[in-house]
Amino acid sequence: MSTGSKKSPSKARVLVVDDESSVLFTYKLILEQQGYAVTAAISSEEAKRAIEAQEFDLVLCDYSLEQQHTGFEVIAAARARRPDVPSLLLTGYATIETTEQAKSDGIGVLFKPIDIAEFLSTTSAFLRNEHESQKVNKDE
């Protein structure tokens, strides 16, 4: 299932990936409430296609996806297109290893069940950082 959104230069472009449709749907709604341009993907395949199709300002991705695929693959793909894209891993399986790997790769981690206030503050903070870093890049 893919939900396209019209590209608006004022809106931040967010890719959200989760293999549970109900979860994916509600994330999408919440993020849209915040005024972001949200693209939702139900699988890694779909997500990769979306990344090929357009550039994102933030990637939110479930850790465990369909079959043996993981969120790291999607983030890797997004970074392949845009190396400095801010990424957040949403996970129910919070193993030390996953957390450590995410941290070392500069990926944020949010543990499910996610407190919505924290969810919102983290996503906006990541987007701000992105803007700031972009500004810095532009200044250079």
Binding site: E20, S22, V23, I30, Y93, K112, P113, I116
Partner: peptide, 18 residues
């Protein structure tokens, strides 16, 4: 079990927020 409950619950929680 928690993990299985987690996803639906995540959706419920999000839905309640919405």
């Amino acid at each position: 079990i928690a993990h299985e409950v987690n996803n639906p619950m995540e959706a419920i929680k999000n839905a309640i927020y919405l």
